[in-house]
Amino acid sequence: MIKKNDLILIGAVIILGLGIIFFINVTKTEGSKVLITIDGKEYDTFPLDEDTTFTVELDNGEYNTFVIKDGQVDMTEASCPDKVCVRHKEIHYNNETIVCLPNNVVLQIIGGEEDEIDAIAK
């Protein structure tokens, strides 16, 4: 039933996936700010070194609440139906995102060049 080609496909896909994950993990750098984007437009940025809780309120009554704590950002509450963004782990590396697709709200970590130099200096 299962052909040799199937096994090659499974192996190739898993190796490709693991390879990309490895590459991302090796090249990732600590970020310093979180950028909030709504409907693809930049809304606001927050520094990661100040603990805070903020609620993004949309014109249509929907909302997303996120917490910055210990240099990490986590979505803690949202009005969306699937709550995928709330279940997402906290983020702090450059270019990491938490996306709330139903509300079209994106949190993205940015601006980590200084930290990168610090990390190398250490």
Partner: peptide
């Protein structure tokens, strides 16, 4: 396309593995 942020492609390698 919808959220206009290419960084979502970050999930792709994980989705390759789970898809397999």
């Amino acid at each position: 396309y919808i959220v206009d942020n290419i960084n979502i492609a970050y999930y792709l390698p994980y989705l390759l593995i789970t898809g397999a």
